[in-house]
Design a binder for these strands. Sequence first.
DNA 1: ACCTGAACACCGTTCAAGT
DNA 2: ACCTGAACACCGTTCAAGT
Lengths: 199, 199
Amino acid sequence: MPTPDRTSLEAIVEAGRDIVESEGPTGLTMQAVAARVGVRPPSLYKRVKNRDDLIRLITKATIRDLGDRLAAVEAEAGTGDASGPELDPRRTLADMARALRGFAHTRPAGFGLVFAPQTSPGGADVEAMTVAVAPLLRVAATLAGQEYELEAARTVTAWASGFIAMELAGAFNLGGDVDRAFEFGISRLADALAARPAN
Amino acid sequence: MPTPDRTSLEAIVEAGRDIVESEGPTGLTMQAVAARVGVRPPSLYKRVKNRDDLIRLITKATIRDLGDRLAAVEAEAGTGDASGPELDPRRTLADMARALRGFAHTRPAGFGLVFAPQTSPGGADVEAMTVAVAPLLRVAATLAGQEYELEAARTVTAWASGFIAMELAGAFNLGGDVDRAFEFGISRLADALAARPAN
DNA sequence: ACCTGAACACCGTTCAAGT
DNA sequence: ACCTGAACACCGTTCAAGT
């Protein structure tokens, strides 16, 4: 007769996310995860292939949350709420960038996992990422035109993720107002993408 | 009578850089470094405090190389060479961005170390980074005006590092020409920074 | 003054044995 | 079918003992 399950994949991933945020990626040991979900380390291998696999699952869950935030911004802009419909795509783009930054501030380590430069190749998060970024792609198309949709979306994503990564790493050490720099960047960027110059 | 030194800090850092590039950050073990410089692991601790310290030194050396490349672009633009003096700061900015990208392609892992989102706080690379980025700061000032120097430099650095990080992570999986996206981004960005709109 | 073997703590992972 | 203790390989780091 099988024993009732003492944990679940979901609980393991959730525990992993918590640990990553509180202890950093280094703190994410199989022992720590096991302790948190109340089993012994070897039991984890019934649900995840290994530590890298767990990190992949944590990253994927983070990407999904991130996509939810972008979708929420898009929905707000599209339908219009109490403050009225938001028609300027530049404003929507800025809101999405701010949503991304807000998310990064609440889950800095998770954000780091998603946008880490040294990701293992063939990460199966490709699909999740594609879905998550779809709203951004749509505003980019509205703003820069269908022809430059991909380029515009990549420009914004690159800028925002780079900015936030540097911010989280404490790279903005020359003083100055980081919020101001963020608003400066998104404003100029939105203008530039909407400009559609000849080249 | 003291024995002659069998290695040096320089050799250790250089070995570390090679290993990081060929095996990735995970492959950077004290044992691998020791084997490469021809001593036993414990001997490394005579020159570096620990593995984190070694990573810090590797990062710092990488930042210095990177700064050299930017300085070279600046020097070329300022003095003018066979192809004549390069006076358009937008062109200089684009050249610096391309230099950064070129560097990242030759040392992807090193680049990842420098622009990793999850850097340990208080990394002593602050000074090295400040020096390295100085040329970029100067073009930014020329382009966007002294008032927006810092914001403009941050915008470009964020975009470029974010773009390259995504490129290295294989995040540009929606097809399209990555080179084209890079040129699109730097071109629009340079225009936007030079525009100096009212806000 | 640098180098080393031995040792310790810690971690990922496997596996046979339990229920 | 899931869970566990025991075990193994591997790694970072310390330290007393060599030269």
